[in-house]
Amino acid sequence: MSLDKATVASIANLARIKVPDDRLEAMVGDLNAILGFVEQLDEVDTSGVEPLASVTGHTLPQREDAVTDGGYQARVTANAPESAHGFFVVPKVVE
C-alpha cells in the first residue's frame, strides 16, 4: 500500500491537522515508510486465524444500571476555553 499526496491531504483534513503544501511531500514519504514497516506483518500467513481482541482472556466488564456519577457541572466545564451559565461555549456552528 502506498499513499499519494492527495490521500495524505485528505487524511490530514479529516483529522483536522493543518499540513502546509510544502510539507506534504515529506509527509507522504514518512507515512509510506511507516506503512511499509507495518506491512512486514503481511508475510505471516493468518488465514483461518480469528482476530485476537485480548491476550488475557478477560471478557468485557459490565456495570449495573445505577446512577453513580455526574452532578458536578463546574468540574466538567472547568477546563473549557469559554463557558457560560453551565454551558460550554464555542464559535457558532449552524447548518
Binding site: A66, V67, D69, G70, G71, Q73, R75, V76, H85, G86
Partner: peptide, 19 residues
C-alpha cells in the same frame, strides 16, 4: 458511564468525566 439519563435537567449536571 454512571451519570443519569434524565431529560430536562440543568446543563452539564448529568455529565461524568467519561461523558
Amino acid at each position: 458511564s454512571g451519570s443519569s439519563t434524565k431529560f430536562g435537567s440543568e446543563a452539564n449536571t448529568q455529565v461524568s468525566l467519561v461523558d
